[in-house]
């Protein structure tokens, strides 16, 4: 069953079309990746899915219903969470306060504290830095905060926008391991990446986006083997 079903989605900034009628779907439990060059429209697509940008046309069905009626700040209450491009940590909140913000809409205090401990279990480094201001952390640590924060909202569908951006290769490895761990916990994910090889390697399916359009889609393995993908995105 599809958790997310996007049909003919169009988004424009002023007169400029950034997303030009795309179709994509994500099944319950899947890890799907969306790859594409800078400016292809990936971030715009994600922002539209969580109500941060208004669509110009098309439909977005989440959990069987169109999301048009959901207020921008209510998406998280429906289980839709996003780790934004550039991580978007609150720089002058501590690590722990950032995590609490992820659980802002929840009222089950004891469970929240449990979940925070679980995040610390995944990222022991964050536990060491729980009282530190998030703005003082390294890029990799901030990415951990952003992912941990998203998990505190107990998402059904998690959107990740370029989690590896600007990180050293060894940290990128770590982040991808964590993505797989989160997926293993049953969270459905849409992963936007420029690091196409790694992203396709851990995903079940993939979409390729170019200038606002989906130009290829399919099984992640098949995309990895595809000549055009290899040339354009895998640097081979």
């Amino acid at each position: 069953m599809s958790l997310l079903e996007v049909k003919n989605l169009q988004v424009a900034y002023g007169g400029i079309q950034a997303v030009k009628g795309i179709d994509l779907h994500i099944n319950q439990g899947e890890l799907v990746t969306l790859i594409g060059a800078n400016g292809a429209g990936k971030t715009t697509t994600l922002k539209t899915l969580v109500g941060m940008v208004k669509r110009a046309g098309g439909s977005i069905e989440y959990d069987g219903k169109d999301v048009a009626s959901i207020a921008p700040y209510d998406f998280v209450r429906h289980g839709l969470a996003m780790v934004p491009e550039g991580r978007g940590v609150f720089p002058k909140l501590t690590v722990e306060e950032n995590l609490h913000m992820g659980a802002f809409y929840r009222n089950d205090k004891a469970e929240i504290l449990n979940d925070i401990e679980r995040v610390y279990g995944l990222f022991p480094r964050l536990k060491e830095r729980q009282k530190q201001l998030a703005g003082t952390l390294s890029g990799g640590e901030q990415q951990m905060v952003a992912m941990g924060r998203a998990m505190l909202s107990r998402p059904k569908l998690l959107l990740l926008d370029e989690p590896s951006m600007g990180l050293a290769p060894i940290i990128v490895q770590k982040i991808f391991e964590i993505i797989q761990m989160v997926a293993a916990e049953g969270v459905t994910m849409l992963l936007v990446e420029q690091n196409a090889k790694l992203a396709l390697e851990i995903s079940q399916r993939g979409y390729v986006m170019e200038s606002g359009k989906i130009t290829m889609s399919g099984n992640a393995r098949d995309l990895l083997d595809d000549e055009r993908v290899r040339n354009a995105y895998l640097g081979e």
């Binding site: 969580v50 700040y73 996003m82 978007g88 909140l93 306060e97 809409y105």
Partner: peptide, 18 residues
Amino acid sequence: RAMRATSQNPAVAGLMGV
């Protein structure tokens, strides 16, 4: 906390349900 988060990054605070 929500006030501080909003002052630092309103768009992301909105994502958190604020």
